[in-house]
Amino acid sequence: MAKQIVKMTLNGQQVEQLVDSRTLLVHFLREQMNLTGAHIGCETSQCGACTVDIDGESVKACTHLAVQCDGSDVKTVEGLAENGVLHPVQEAFYEEHGLQCGYCTPGMLMRSYRFLQENPNPTEDEIRTGISGNLCRCTGYQNIIKAVQSAATKLQDKETASA
């Protein structure tokens, strides 16, 4: 079996692991690293429940090999809160009822986290397009959109406060 050493920064920590070349990133995270936040929904890259951040970009971890992450900086939903303080997108999803069963939530959060860096002040249409790689069966997206809008405001307020 073709195993390789992979080194990456995972949620701010250096990790070094031996992985099979065919191991999908989502299985590496969930089974090898016990980070079960990223979920598996479709396996064909439609649903986005496995979305993580790799080197500053949103990526679907079900369609990415763990070996491809050698040298990368990977962030998962478990790394979103810092020092026990929720990230504004997490707060906003909670406050705006942006989740129900919670299964799409880690992917939605990771996508929203990155999207709001790509577009800090989005319109509703831009949010709809920005999260169009993530499926939710429960919320009808309406409150997710509200949550992203609210998170945008929070992030801007934070920016203003620190400026």
């Binding site: 986005g48 979305t51 949103s58 990526v59 679907k60 369609t63 920005g130 790689g133």
Partner: peptide, 9 residues
């Protein structure tokens, strides 16, 4: 083409 995540890859 595709969706935002897929367009990153």
């Amino acid at each position: 083409i595709a969706d935002p995540q897929v367009r990153n890859r």
